[in-house]
Design a protein around this nucleic acid. Structure first.
Lengths: 335, 335
DNA sequence: TTGTACGCGTTATCAC
DNA sequence: GTGATAACGCGTACAA
């Protein structure tokens, strides 16, 4: 069943069928109705490959994600896919992992499939040393890139993110305001976003003339990310003689580990220990009391990624960088 | 840069270039080397649309998933995508939601994009009344379907699942063996898998000649699925005068809610309350003590989905149904 | 308003 | 082994 069959059965030329198909050009209402009827009757569906060949597009967006199993990223995945679908774009998924070589390969594969654009989820995709970002610049020469929660100034690269710096600064201030003195800062990732968050923590202390004690800033091993692992890490920190009355982390899952630590050593929240997480994910509701967490507006960010992409694809101009503000959601783990 | 350019620069015909490209037919080693060199030099990448048009395939698999944000499904998504990628297949994602109309639409959209096969994640995709499954039978006439954690006997539909019936039976038996008398069974979904699980619970009791008390079997509202919601549901159950010394659920997240309930009312695990979850997801590690959970071997299932799909696409025959056995992972929430 | 004819970049079937 | 050439199914100038 192709366009020729339809044109024959409808007694018109393929050009007319094509016009009806694409809604566009001028076709007499009568012919249109007739052709539509024939198409419906025959259950005709235009061949996407042939159409792609001609239009150089199959209305497909590449979604790159280091790890689709991650609670935060999978949430983003869900928002993005649904929003793109509303615009009749399908999403090609690529779970690349964090290694540069794999990310590059992921981008190239999607490039070879001629997606219309790509969304790169998380600041993992941007390397600190700019030489490593050649693959991004190269991709951006061929199609628009939208970066979720990352920043990279480059033509045809559009960034949508939350002000992580301000967010952790606000969280730190809140802890200080509620009487905490020794705030343990725990983080997993040294990428752009991770650095901004840490900088916010430092800045909050410095702004008040408080010392930044480096032994309260702890990078957790990247390969031990389960909640019990994190609990054990914190137990070890305590065992090493470091005292803290609050835990601020770069991810909810870390804070869940902190809550677990608190239970084990019988420290009550928020009296003996305050905890703040990041992302306001479903993990923050798992603990008792529930965790105060920084809501970085994932849904808003994702929707903005999609509308930015749509604008760019439509030839309109879009802001190179859009920054939203996070919001602290206060729950039982803080005063 | 297309096949003509390459053939011209290499001084051969496009047929030869095509042969080199597809590794197949007889080409003299010398010509092959030369053509490969030219292709590399020019950075030539064959056009996927044109290739798709000729081959009627773009090596793409459709992944349908009611909700990519779900902890369990996103894990599956990750496993599936990576395994397919190893076989050089890309994945087109469709988060359909649970409504039949939307699922049908998702299938049809992927059908129109001429994916080579589809994986349907979760038993949500199979309707109880078979009339609702016409969309599956229809799709199966055109391409192979692999169902993850669902069963539907139909030509060209391949099912990969865990024996949920036996799994909950085993879990129930374990609770009974460790001295529990009143096991509250909580579930969220009435789909195929949900029914099997419940049946396993009933069967375990019946096999021991114990009464199945319907007021210990509770269906939780589908739209209130957050941990605090579930905690409140359980509090309400208790308030209604129902006594229980164990909670068995169809999903880890429900059991996390149960653990939260236990904390609120100061019931200690496992002495005063035993809890078993399902899926052995990261949620089961969030609680203190950690939750005993039924591991339904998601990674194994996913890998099997992929190898089944590959076999079918290669024209080999594959088992219509493959059933794995779940395994109870014992942790602190049970004796 | 409608139709003709060509281009899109491959693969595949023939001949040679 | 290699080279013409016909599909593949659709979009679209251009002509009518």
């Amino acid at each position: 069943m192709n366009i020729y069959d339809i044109s024959e059965k409808a007694g018109v030329s393929i050009a007319t069928v094509s016009r009806v198909l694409n809604g566009s050009s001028r076709v007499s209402p009568k012919t249109r109705e007739h052709v539509l009827a024939v198409m419906a009757e025959q259950g005709y569906v235009p061949n996407a490959f042939a159409r792609g060949l001609g239009l150089k597009s199959m209305k497909t967006i590449g979604l790159l994600c280091p790890n689709a199993a991650d609670a935060y990223l999978s949430q983003a995945l869900n928002y993005l896919e649904r929003a793109f679908r509303v615009h009749e774009y399908d999403c090609l998924l690529s779970c690349t992992g964090k290694a540069l070589a794999d990310r590059r390969k992921g981008v190239e594969l999607l490039l070879s499939k001629h997606v219309d654009g790509m969304v790169l989820m998380g600041s993992t995709f941007v390397e600190d040393q700019d030489a490593g970002n050649e693959y991004l610049r190269n991709a951006a020469r061929k199609l628009p890139l939208v970066l979720l929660n990352a920043s990279y100034p480059c033509d045809n690269v559009f960034c949508v993110l939350c002000d992580d710096y301000r967010a952790t600064m606000e969280a730190t201030n809140y802890l200080l305001d509620t009487g905490c003195k020794d705030i343990l800062y725990l983080y997993h990732s040294r990428n752009y976003s991770g650095q901004k968050k840490l900088a916010g923590y430092r800045a909050a202390l410095e702004n008040r003339g408080l010392p930044v004690r480096e032994n309260l800033i702890r990078f957790l091993s990247e390969d031990k990310t389960s909640v019990p692992d994190i609990r054990d890490d914190i137990l070890a920190i305590e065992a090493s003689g470091i005292h803290f009355d609050a835990v601020l982390s770069s991810e909810d899952i870390i804070s869940v580990g902190a809550a677990k630590y608190a239970r084990v050593v019988h420290r009550r929240m928020p009296d003996s220990l305050s905890i703040i997480g990041y992302n306001n994910s479903s993990y923050s509701l798992c603990c008792e009391p529930e965790l105060t967490s920084m809501d970085n507006k994932l849904e808003t960010l994702c929707n903005h990624c999609v509308s930015t992409m749509m604008a760019v694809l439509a030839g309109q101009d879009a802001p190179q960088k859009t920054v939203f503000t996070a919001e602290l959601v206060k729950r039982g783990s803080t005063r």
